[in-house]
């Protein structure tokens, strides 16, 4: 069943654009394990190519700095610190401070130290749940409150790791969009693996049409969203779960219990002003499990919840 929060319904048969739709110029690349797409709604192909290259460079810069898979990333240095303080630059510090605020704001439901749980939870659709002892062994390594933030210095407890998985891609989308919007007035769409943001409506004033698989998988005609401003992100993945004894374990883990959130929707798509805000809200809504819809309604967010 699909739970549809109101007010996002656009009128059908709206005024058609004045001219034949000119296709935006698209620039595709891979970054952060995701297909990335930069679309520029303008006639200047040369400029679009230039902007695409700029976007690609910025995405790779962010990835190289904040990826936990790349050994030389600044993040890997922090994760390898084994209890010693690590000096970080302003940008990293700002992101850590941001993560800190999100942790406080969510009463610990948003925690970038919870990534270590992925060592034992593998959401491959199987029934292989980790043993109780495995979870208990990891719990001391989880908890943002165990991290000390100083002035440009971060200290983790030995064995702890930080994972920007819930922030990095969203941050990259926002950064890239702002960067490109400074270079051109042409409308732009930045889409990193489904986390996306637009600079404004298309040239003819129409919304960008975006296919979002998880919004309405059973109804292909409703599978596109119109977006004229702001960002859209989707949390949840209908294919990543564990099923044991009739219980469906979502791949969203509760950092406080070390276990998947029970009763979470299959996916949540959220529209917000920036990709970061949309991302945090959709992650938090997921973590609320059965209360996801109520949380979104209380926050008055435009959202699509798929159960």
């Amino acid at each position: 069943m699909t739970f549809f929060l109101p007010v996002m319904a656009g009128p059908k048969g709206f005024i058609k654009p004045m001219h034949k739709k000119r296709k935006p110029v698209s620039h595709l690349f891979m970054a952060m394990n995701s297909p990335c797409d930069i679309q520029v709604d303008g006639d200047d192909v040369h400029l679009a190519r230039e902007l695409g290259a700029l976007a690609e460079a910025e995405a790779h810069r962010i990835e190289a700095k904040y990826s936990r898979y790349q050994e030389n990333s600044q993040l890997s240095q922090v994760n390898r610190s084994n209890g010693t303080p690590v000096e970080v630059d302003t940008e990293m510090m700002a992101l850590l401070t941001y993560a800190n605020s999100c942790y406080e704001l969510s009463d610990g439901l948003f925690d970038i130290t919870s990534g270590v749980l992925r060592r034992i939870w593998r959401f491959d659709g199987s029934d292989k749940l980790p043993a109780e002892a495995e979870i208990e062994a990891l719990m001391p390594l989880i908890g943002w409150d165990k991290v000390t933030l100083g002035k440009n210095v971060v200290t983790l407890k030995p064995g702890m790791e930080i994972d920007f998985g819930g922030l990095g891609k969203e941050y990259a989308v926002d950064r890239v969009l702002m960067l490109l919007a400074e270079k051109t007035d042409s409308p732009i769409l930045v889409n990193f693996g489904g986390d996306l943001r637009v600079s404004g409506p298309r040239r003819d004033g129409s919304p960008w049409r975006i296919a979002i698989e998880s919004v309405e998988p059973d109804d292909p005609s409703a599978a596109t969203l119109g977006i004229k401003s702001g960002a859209i992100t989707t949390s949840g993945d209908a294919r990543r779960f564990l099923l044991k004894g009739g219980v469906r374990y979502s791949h969203i883990l509760n950092p406080r219990t070390g276990r998947p959130v029970i009763g979470a929707p299959r996916s949540i798509t959220v529209a917000a002003r920036t990709c970061m805000e949309a991302g945090i809200i959709s992650t938090l809504a997921m973590a609320k499990g059965p209360d996801a819809e109520r949380f979104l309604r209380d926050e008055e967010m435009a959202a699509w919840v798929l159960r």
Partner: peptide
Amino acid sequence: ITANLFTVTGLHAQDITDSTNNPSAQDSAE
């Protein structure tokens, strides 16, 4: 805090700090 983040990270020192500009459904939708 998002506005603050982008201020600190150097892009757009004047990002929105006005929460009334938070996108609402009708702004984001058609």
